[in-house]
């Protein structure tokens, strides 16, 4: 384990644009960002400002067109397929804005999936996934498929899945967007615990209250960082 304070995420001048027919959409234009181990960062900004794009790049799912991204001292651009797969599997837990659950699999099976790719045996996988679902209050819904679950329940499955492999970095794109205030508070409490345990958390939110649980708030506008404010 590394100690708190050393840089985990180092981003230098990254840009990402999409060609939409003749027009080019610049989702990110020259973002610099450093996140140290153990930090709790909230990213805010209007819709379309590039928050999800940035999260995808940090999560090693997307590659920037320009700039450099260094994760735990290694340049992501230089990583091969199996190395990237390993990083996505072990180091990063991703809660997607749209959940991205396997529709044909049960909640339990969905939560087990990262363990499957980590090569964990059937028995242990089952134990750990059930425990994770119990923790997010879905003990009764384990064997249901996503289309039999409410939006909030799906989100909790997604969170349980993101945390199952004990990732050192948790990325959450609007994790509380679909939750009632009670469940949201519980989820945020989980995040606080993870933070207290030394994990690095980056979350996207539109909710000031949620953002203020983080120690640092970054505001994006038109693909650029507008403000980056740390508070106590």
């Amino acid at each position: 384990m590394s100690t708190a304070g050393e840089p985990v995420i180092t981003i230098r001048g990254i840009g990402r644009s999409y060609a939409m027919g003749d027009a080019v959409v610049h989702a990110l234009r020259g973002v610099d960002l450093d996140v140290a181990r153990g930090e709790y960062v909230a990213i805010m900004g209007p819709s379309g400002s590039g928050k999800s794009t940035l999260m995808n790049i940090i999560g090693c799912l997307d590659r920037p067109d320009t700039g450099e991204y260094t994760l735990n001292g290694r340049q992501v651009a230089r990583m091969g397929d199996s190395e990237l797969a390993h990083v996505r599997n072990r180091e990063i837990g991703f809660v997607f804005q749209t959940f991205n659950l396997l529709q044909r699999a049960t909640a339990l099976r969905n939560v087990e999936l990262p363990l499957v790719y980590a090569g964990v045996g059937r028995h242990e996988r089952h134990e750990r996934a059930s425990a994770a679902l119990v923790r997010v209050g879905l003990a009764e819904r384990m064997h249901h498929r996503p289309n039999e679950l409410s939006g909030g329940q799906r989100q909790r499955v997604a969170i349980a899945r993101a945390l199952i492999n004990r990732p050192s970095i948790l990325l959450a794109d609007e994790p509380t967007g679909n939750l009632d205030s009670h469940t949201a508070t519980e989820i945020l409490a989980t995040f606080d615990e993870l933070h207290a345990a030394g994990n690095t958390i980056v979350l996207v939110t539109h909710d000031d209250e949620v953002a203020h649980r983080a120690r640092r708030i970054i505001r994006l506008r038109d693909g650029k960082i507008e403000t980056d404010i740390a508070h106590a």
């Binding site: 999560g59 799912l61 397929d81 199996s82 797969a85 390993h86 996505r88 599997n89 072990r90 991703f94 997607f96 991205n100 659950l101 396997l102 529709q103 044909r104 999936l113 990262p114 790719y117 980590a118 899945r161 492999n165």
Partner: peptide
């Protein structure tokens, strides 16, 4: 396609 994306995001290699 989505399933493939999900599996990759969760740590599936190209080979698997």
């Amino acid at each position: 396609t989505r399933e493939i994306g999900i599996r990759k995001a969760l740590g599936a290699t190209r080979f698997s």
